[in-house]
């Protein structure tokens, strides 16, 4: 039997997260106790949440993270390798087989920036990847970037430049900081992508 008033997957996610107000939650629960189709959709959302959790633990995503995410990873026994090169400077870095997450802490004054992009550049400074409009608080004072551990473990020795750029109200772009990571391969083999 097809549900005549199906619950949206995002609302079901809110329900699973405990993010619905009392009356709305009660409405969802009454519906779920009467509807296997929406129950099936909730199971899909639960599976999605569980799988995202596994993906996050793998450290394979390139993304901006919070300190809370790092603290949780450490609490779960994951090994987190962190580097904090100064703005305009560089740092020697590597990864080992035991590392789970690779973090770069990029200190910068983000105030006044309406939008912040993180650009990943090669050793010549040529942009290879841009994370546009990253999720950062303008008062944070730093961007916490997670490099893909899959990428890093496969990487040969190389230099990578991270560049933070901000956009003001008028949309004018300005450099907020540039950070050089001098990666030395310490894993066996030559490394290749």
């Amino acid at each position: 039997m097809s549900c005549v008033n199906p619950l949206d997957a995002a609302v079901l996610a809110d329900y699973w997260l405990g993010a619905l107000a009392g009356a709305e939650e009660e409405g969802v629960e009454l519906h779920l106790l009467d509807c296997d189709e929406c129950g099936g959709r909730l199971r899909e959302v639960m599976a999605l949440a569980e799988e995202v959790r596994k993906i996050a633990r793998e450290g394979s995503l390139r993304m901006v993270v919070s300190d809370g995410i790092i603290e949780r990873a450490v609490g779960e026994g994951l090994r987190v390798r962190q580097y904090a090169p100064p703005a305009g400077g560089g740092v020697e870095c590597t990864v080992t087989a035991e590392d789970d997450l690779l973090i770069g802490r990029l200190a910068a004054d983000l105030s006044g920036a309406r939008r912040v992009d993180l650009c990943i550049c090669d050793e010549r400074g040529v942009e290879q990847l841009r994370l546009a409009d990253i999720a950062v608080h303008s008062g944070a004072g730093e961007v916490v970037y997670q490099e893909s551990m899959t990428f890093a473990k496969a990487s040969p020795s190389m230099k990578m430049i991270a560049r933070l750029v901000g956009f003001d109200e008028a949309g004018v772009e300005r450099l907020l900081g540039e950070y050089t990571f001098n990666h030395t391969r310490s894993l066996p083999g030559p490394g290749a992508w």
Partner: peptide, 13 residues
């Protein structure tokens, strides 16, 4: 970017 960060903060953290 924002969506990825929010999803991971929500479901993982």
């Amino acid at each position: 970017e924002r969506e990825r960060t929010v999803v991971v903060m929500t479901f993982y953290d």
